[in-house]
């Protein structure tokens, strides 16, 4: 029995790799020079953000920026995602027939039933605690969509009910715009924080005014849209 010698050199061309390393070093040097000539004011940006953060009663600085100061931007992002989902749905219209050829094995079927509630719970946790810890609506929604993906892979007959998705998405979109308009009426800014938000309650679950509400809505919308995209890509009636 002859052992085959395994070497890394066989697969990676040395000349190109050394070229990459050289260019990487060059870029790093340029970056280093650029970063040394930066003005020192950039260090105080975090403190400024924290000061703004305390006016809002939200423990997570990024949340304040994303939802409160750039809420209109978030609306745009959500509509971009909606248009992407709609385009994929139009191009790959899924019938009930499914083109996954092989059955999944018993292990995957059992494990997906155990894992799906855990993933759903984790996604909801990320969504609800978005104003206190890293996380938020987009992340929670995508985590829930990956749980749906696990179910789609494991179970051949499983299908996300289209009417439920339509209802959830419409509800989430309409309520986002409505909350924004109520803020516009009460406080003269789109998505104004009209619910009570005391700074003394900062760090509690029920604090931050409308921001957790908005994150839950964004999470529902993103989760349903991503589930629909994944389902349309996996299940398709015709073979290419």
């Amino acid at each position: 029995m002859n052992r085959r010698k395994i070497s890394i050199k066989r697969e990676l061309p040395t000349a190109t790799l050394s070229g990459f390393v050289l260019s990487a070093l060059l870029i790093l040097t340029i970056l280093n020079i650029l970063l040394q000539n930066m003005p020192h004011k950039i260090e105080t940006a975090g403190d400024l953000l924290l000061k703004l953060n305390t006016t809002e009663g939200v423990a997570n600085a990024v949340t304040t920026v994303v939802v409160y100061f750039r809420g209109f931007d978030t609306l745009g992002e959500i509509s971009v995602l909606f248009i992407a989902s709609m385009g994929i749905g139009l191009m790959l219209r899924s019938n009930t027939k499914c083109n996954i050829k092989s059955e999944s094995n018993f292990m995957l079927q059992t494990a997906s039933k155990i894992l799906f509630p855990v993933i759903l719970l984790f996604g909801t946790y990320v969504m609800i605690y978005g104003h206190l810890s890293p996380g938020g609506g987009f992340q929670g929604g995508v985590i829930i969509a990956s749980g749906v993906l696990l179910l789609l892979i494991s179970d051949k007959a499983f299908e996300v009910p289209h009417s439920v998705i339509v209802a959830l998405e419409t509800f989430a979109g309409v309520s986002y715009v409505l909350i924004g308009l109520i803020g516009l009426l009460v406080l003269d800014t789109f998505l104004g924080n009209f619910l009570p938000h005391d700074i003394s309650q900062m760090g509690m679950l029920l604090s931050g005014g409308i921001i957790p509400l908005i994150y839950i809505i964004v999470g529902i919308k993103v989760g349903s849209e991503m589930s629909m995209i994944v389902q349309n890509l996996i299940k398709r009636s015709d073979d290419v």
Binding site: M1, S102, N105, M107, L108, I114, L115
Partner: peptide
């Protein structure tokens, strides 16, 4: 616990897929 649940699962799925794809043992 989550890692203990998912890690064997993913390895079994990869093994199944590569067997279906026709991968053979070297030795």
């Amino acid at each position: 616990i989550f890692i203990l649940l998912t890690n064997p699962l993913s390895s079994s799925v990869i093994a199944r897929a590569s067997h279906k794809d026709g991968a053979t043992l070297e030795l």
